[in-house]
Amino acid sequence: MNSPESRLRIRKEADVTVVEFLDRHLLDEANIAQFSEDIGSLVNSETSPKVLISFANVEHLSSAVLSALITIHNRIKTKDGQLRLSDISDQILEVFHITQLDRMFHIHKGADDALESFA
């Protein structure tokens, strides 16, 4: 399911698409654009997509990642889908809190919690 250039690990859990990052640092603008495009493609390929994005491996990110997540969120909303985020470190959670994006995203401590939360 991954393209050769993809820096994502993508798998299915029932009807939920689970996305994990292979990189610890999400800073490279080319990689960010690529993962945004990869996730955008899988959202476009489904009706009412259910997507879980896990940050289990991620130690650093930039605001460009937040921009990509908002774009993905908006796209999923227009398709009447659902997006969950999980496994976010305390340091990165603080970034979501400062930007108040923790109010917009459904953030779960672990992937299991997140998977159970899908309607």
């Binding site: 605001s63 937040l66 908002i70 908006n74 930007t99 108040q100």
Partner: peptide, 21 residues
Amino acid sequence: DPTLPENLLNPAGRGLLLIRA
């Protein structure tokens, strides 16, 4: 201010906020 409700869905403009924070 990207944290205002009307700007929350706008993908851009969070870099400066983070630097200041």
